[in-house]
Amino acid sequence: MALQSMTGFARREGTSGRCRWAWELRSVNGKGLDARLRLPPGLERLETDARKRIADRFTRGNLQVGLSVSFDESRVEAVVNQNALATVLALRNQLAGVIDPAPLRLDTLLGIRGIVEFKEAEESEEALATLDADIIAGLDAALGDLAEMRKQEGRALGEILLGHVATIEALTVAVERDPSRSPQEIAAKLSAQLALLLDGAAGLDRDRLHAEAALIATRADLREEIDRLKAHVAAARDLIAKGGPVGRKLDFLAQEFNRESNTICSKSNAAAVTAAGIELKVVIDQFREQVQNLE
Rank of each mutant, 00 (worst) to 15 (best):
Ala270Trp: 06
Met149Ile: 07
Glu77Leu: 08
Ile136Ser: 14
Val165Met: 03
Lys151Pro: 01
Val69Tyr: 02
Ala235Tyr: 01
Ile168Trp: 03
Leu190Ile: 12
Asp238Ser: 14
Arg150Ala: 13
Ala78Cys: 05
Gly243Cys: 04
Leu146Ser: 11
Ala231Asp: 00
Glu224Thr: 03
Lys31His: 15
Leu106Met: 14
Val165Ala: 11
Glu225Cys: 08
Arg181Tyr: 08
Ala211His: 09
Phe9Tyr: 15
Gly17Ile: 03
Glu279Leu: 11
Arg219Thr: 09
Met149Ser: 11
Arg228Pro: 05
Val88Glu: 03
Ala231Gly: 06
Arg181Glu: 10
Leu280Arg: 01
Leu39Trp: 04
Ala137Lys: 13
Phe252Lys: 05
Gly203Glu: 13
Leu89Tyr: 02
Ala142Gly: 13
Leu146Lys: 07
Arg177Thr: 15
Ala35Cys: 12
Thr130Ile: 05
Gly14Pro: 13
Leu253Ala: 12
Ser16Lys: 01
Ile240Tyr: 11
Pro40Thr: 10
Thr108Pro: 05
Ala234Glu: 13
Val28Pro: 08
Thr59Lys: 10
Ser261Cys: 07
Glu256Cys: 08
Cys265Asp: 04
Cys265Trp: 07
Lys119Gln: 15
Thr263Val: 05
Ala133Gly: 09
Ala137Gly: 09
Arg228Phe: 07
Pro101Ser: 05
Lys189Asn: 05
Ala35Thr: 06
Gln286His: 09
Val173Pro: 00
Ser16Gly: 06
Gln286Asn: 14
Asp199Gly: 06
Leu46Gly: 06
Thr218Met: 09
Gln290Gly: 11
Glu256Phe: 12
Arg45Cys: 13
Leu104Ala: 14
Gly154Asp: 09
Ala211Asp: 12
Ser74Trp: 02
Leu3Val: 03
Arg12Tyr: 03
Thr274Gln: 07
Ala272Cys: 00
Phe252Glu: 01
Pro245Gln: 01
Ile278Glu: 04
Ser74Asn: 07
Gly203Leu: 02
Pro40Cys: 10
Ser180Val: 14
Arg12Asp: 00
Gln292Lys: 15
Asp72Trp: 06
Ile135Arg: 10
Gly61Leu: 04
Asp199Asn: 09
